[in-house]
Write a protein that binds this DNA or RNA. Structure first.
Lengths: 383, 383
DNA sequence: TGCACTTTCGCAACAGCGTTGCCAAAGTGG
DNA sequence: CCACTTTGGCAACGCTGTTGCGAAAGTGCA
């Protein structure tokens, strides 16, 4: 590690703690304790952050016998990122500030089959609208890390825009931002979505699977118990997929193929799935949903979740997606019962892994997509 | 990150590259390229390492028109670690040098039911024999990182002993080094193995599951394609378990429970397992083994491995354990066929995940246990 | 054989990081 | 009002990796 890298590493570390502290703020001494740095070093770092407009003083704590601690907080409006959720028939674009709060949103219908040009145009227009509408008049620079391209280009006056994150279902290559196969739309096969969009918008673009984006967003929002922990986001909608956060980072695998939860085989001689296997969870679970048997769907989902929990020893299971939204309590209870029974039989210390409904509802993917750009600023390497 | 932390971080990084270069060695300029540091920084770092006796010059490369590069290599005998594989009926202790090469070994029968005192005594004696027998006369200091306790204490004249790693089957707490339940031996429940052994031997002790140790050892030995990659080690012996390496690090989970591969349910209405579930891979696979149907055992194992591969998008599957050793080709072929068929159906780019027999045979766990102490010296946080 | 050239590597000076020593600021409590 | 505690900034410092320059050690050509 380089000296320059060290500086930005520590700055990102402090910035991350400032964000996690939220509106409550955090004092310099607390930052020093948590980072392991000396108070003086924190003072220098926070001074640089304040110069750049990323941090500010925000009142004081009660005194404990001496000079009261000065509370520092993140300046959320010092930077923004756009998150795009590209689904088969819908487009959702959000603008979030550094805190992750949504400051603008836009939804529209979309036809993926209309061709690359039309879709790119629609996405670009929506991004421009959302970004420009909120950033008009804001001119304070928030030069990010090393890779900052600086604004001024495509998005009018948006000096504080970090970039655009795009999340979509299909198999794709996250590292290169290239789509593989989009079921039903062969013309998208191999399309370099990241570079095409980056050229149009003249800002950094990151592409990822929808489930990964959702998992990242949930990891950031703190619902999952802080950094360094592991959880799974199970998305039950038109399909069944998972986003995995392991040790605080989104795990994607070398081919961005991780999280293929739906085609886990749980019944060797089960019904044939369109993937070619027999007895995939997806077939069994969605079949039960189609029959209206939510209990069975939840039970099957629970068995598969149990396999995952046992394999990875994760801390929380979060459920999301349209199907879950239709009967959240039933799914949480059904999955929880399976996991609970398994934990009791195995005598796991600390009891069963908790099961919850993922917060943020339908916006979770779009918000997570925006975090693809923000996370690196806060010391989380998973972008 | 601290400045001191930065120094040891970079030193560990260089040391890791030196180890990976093996007997061939590596030049300063190559080290600079791979670490991203300037050649001068590498010169300083390697000078410190040479002062400590951890690195040495080893000849020169052919000139490419100028002064030929000086080749540096790790000095393997500058440090040693002991690896202990504690099985239900057997004890295996190895002494490895910094390169991971076994320089001494000792096997003995063991009765876990003989009680803590007797087992601790047997382990301590074996460790002393293996360590002292090889380190007699070696006195050069190899002060490791920060946590070095320094030798001189319990193990006679073993100034270069980094510590002792212990690997054993049962569920346990890796972070605290405490056993949970050892099936069939309730008196071990909650036993603080790490601290008890550390006190007896007066050297650092680390405790981990056998499958995790094996996975770490395999990650280090380079069979799995270098750092940063992911693989699964599937151990088929008296039970069926897995060791997972994700992104170059052993994934254990908060409760050291990760890798519970054998009780993955793959047949909802399958035969009852002793764990209480129905249709676990372990029951199905070991049942087929008992019937002598290796093909079916491999097929079932392949389905479960396919679930794992899909979920984590790993790069390699390594098979090990006594049962696999009995018919290695059959298992590799059987599992490979299932994974291959699945990859073809899904049109995965790059083809199916390769399946291989884990190298090092019966010693893989003991060698990996020793790596529990060596890995941190080489910049791999997974200890 | 001699010289020009290339490449490697170390010494010395340097900029920048976090650290230490010291002091002003801003509270509490007697 | 003063003693005391605690916070946070200023200046000097040690140490990090970096830059500038030169010695060392080869190759290749005249």
């Amino acid at each position: 590690m380089n000296l320059g890298a060290l500086r930005s590493h520590n700055a990102a570390l402090v910035l991350g703690l400032l964000r996690d502290a939220g509106a409550e703020g955090i004092s310099r001494l607390e930052l020093a304790e948590r980072t392991g740095l000396t108070p003086q070093a924190v003072s220098k770092i926070t001074a640089r952050l304040r110069e750049r407009g990323l941090a500010a003083e925000a009142g004081r704590r009660a005194s404990t016998g001496g000079k009261p601690r000065t509370v520092l907080r993140l300046v959320p409006e010092a930077g923004h990122a756009v998150g795009v959720h590209l689904d088969r028939d819908e487009l959702r674009v959000v603008l979030v500030d550094l805190d992750g709060a949504v400051v603008a949103e836009r939804c529209a219908e979309l036809d993926l089959g209309a061709g690359a040009e039309a879709v790119l145009g629609a996405v670009s227009a929506a991004v421009r609208t959302v970004a420009a509408g909120s950033l008009a008049g804001s001119g304070s620079p928030a030069a990010g890390g090393k890779g900052s391209t600086g604004g001024g280009g495509g998005l009018g006056g948006a000096g504080t825009l970090v970039g655009v994150g795009v999340a979509l279902p299909g198999p794709l290559d996250h590292a290169r931002g290239v789509l593989h196969r989009v079921t039903g739309f062969p013309e998208w096969d191999g399309f370099p979505l990241r570079d095409a969009l980056a050229q149009r918008l003249a800002v950094p673009v990151v592409v990822d699977k929808d489930t990964n984006a959702a998992a990242l967003g949930l990891a950031v929002c703190g619902e999952t118990g802080g950094a360094g922990r592991s959880f799974a986001y199970l998305h039950l909608g038109t399909g069944l997929g998972a986003g995995l956060v392991i040790g605080g980072s989104v795990h994607r695998g070398a081919r961005t193929g991780a999280g293929e939860f739906g085609h886990q085989v749980i019944q060797l001689d089960g019904p044939l799935c369109e993937c070619g296997n027999r007895g995939c969870v997806e077939v069994l679970c969605l079949g039960a949903v189609a029959r209206g048997d939510v209990g069975e769907a939840a039970r099957v989902l629970g068995v598969a979740a149990g396999n995952l929990v046992g394999l990875l020893d994760i801390d929380v299971v979060l459920l999301g997606g349209r199907t879950v939204a239709g009967a959240p309590e039933a799914y949480v209870r059904g999955v929880g019962e399976v996991l609970g029974a398994r934990a009791r039989r195995e005598g796991v210390r600390g009891g069963a892994v908790p099961v919850r409904v993922a917060p943020r509802g339908e916006r979770v993917v779009a918000e997570g997509a925006a975090q693809l750009l923000l996370a690196p600023l806060f010391g989380r390497g998973d972008a």
